[in-house]
Design a binder for these strands. Structure first.
Lengths: 223, 223
DNA sequence: CTTTTTTTGTACCATTTCGCACTAAATCCC
DNA sequence: GGGATTTAGTGCGAAATGGTACAAAAAAAG
């Protein structure tokens, strides 16, 4: 995902254009930042401290862009938050899609999905950062309809991904006929939400993995 | 302004003492607020907007106390947040204890616990406010060790409450020997966390109730 | 009535915060 | 080289924020 997005043609002649649409020739002074990595830094900060507690100065320091540049590139703080969240979701969606694409037994697929979630939630220089969707639900979702819609969407998509997983498993005979993919999916999503909360409370990885293992056993039967 | 707030023993002889420790005779100017209801208002505000996005002016307006009084009564903003959270947890603990005390079948007990959670999460003038623990995990828990400890505690206590519930059910023969109370409890807690997140995204009550119903079926078997 | 004690409420301060002019710099086009 | 164009970076300013000093007010105690 993190494609080097080819910044501006600089450093030399525009010989090696990677693959991206690659803007042909920019006109004025070249940017001193790469929008993509700057957005990544912003996301990182927002994930650590949330919307309200993150100041533009903090964002400016983290991205290396000064405030006017930040503003010019991404709009105001709210827009930047939304773009950060979009990026987070795109990344998560890609990860999930990648796993769902594999032709694996449910158990393995669940293991992969939960492991991916843990990697995301536990990453972070100063302590695990949890799930951005859960954080956003807890803060901006109430007052901001647009952001709330994104949260709703994220939750729904996760449910659907898991449901797809269980439905297929049922078709393949891995689950009993009595199994309800939608219910199982909601429980799997719930487990995701729960480990996100616990991660931010600094529950150690092993404990979270134990929770995941227990959940999988209940969802698809003990190994 | 707004002095309806007749508080302590006054208006007549201290004849009708309700039940509380009832402070005997205060010395100086009487308070224009009741600490308890003020704290309740503060909690309400914090639950709606979170720590960082709630200003002292907001709190002052909500409680009817001016900032210096607020400070004198509860300390700075962080202390007020902690006291609000404590109050929230005390209340939740009381509710849970009340339910656990009943000699009911697991299913009924779970139904009662989840119903109580939904009542808490869905209340609020302007939209459901979710779970304070989940919100706090998503915001202050990373940077503030004391607050993080409270969140850890809250999560652990919830797990234990559910585990107690399932363990007893197992003893009473309501659950198969193969059932693991701890694992089931974590799934129940996860369901709690999940409906808290969804509530803030304004998922309608019926949908949340459906999730709860599905979870209960998986946890203790279909009715 | 006076003193003492406690709370209230106004006013203030130092900082932070967000946003935006405005100037300087760097690159492209002719 | 000269002009056009785009970005960088300094810095300002209005508003908000957290916190507090201080005097007035309200009650009990003497």
């Amino acid at each position: 995902m993190v494609q080097k997005k080819k910044g501006p043609p600089q450093g030399g002649p525009p010989a090696e254009i990677t693959a991206a649409p690659a803007e042909p020739k920019r006109r004025g002074r070249p940017r001193a930042y790469e929008p993509d990595v700057a957005l990544g830094k912003a996301l990182e900060l927002f994930r650590a401290t949330g919307f309200a507690a993150t100041s533009l100065d903090d964002l400016s320091a983290a991205t290396g862009m000064n405030r006017p540049s930040l503003y010019g590139a991404f709009g105001d703080k709210r827009e930047l938050y939304i773009k950060s969240y979009q990026r987070y979701r795109d990344s998560a969606r890609a990860t999930i899609g990648e796993i769902l694409r594999q032709d694996w037994p449910v158990r393995r697929q669940l293991e992969a999905l939960f492991a991916a979630a843990l990697d995301i939630y536990l990453s972070g220089e100063e302590g695990p950062r949890g799930c951005f969707t859960v954080m956003t639900a807890g803060s901006e979702a109430i007052a901001d309809p647009d952001i709330r819609a994104m949260v709703q969407n994220a939750v729904t998509e996760l449910d659907k991904a898991f449901a797809h997983c269980f439905r297929r498993a049922k078709e393949k005979g891995e689950l009993p006929d009595s199994a309800d993919p939608v219910v199982l999916a909601q429980l799997a999503s719930a487990t995701i939400h729960s480990i996100a909360v616990r991660a931010r409370a600094r529950v150690p990885r092993e404990a979270l993995e134990a929770i995941v293992a227990g959940a999988i056993d209940v969802l698809v039967g003990r190994k």
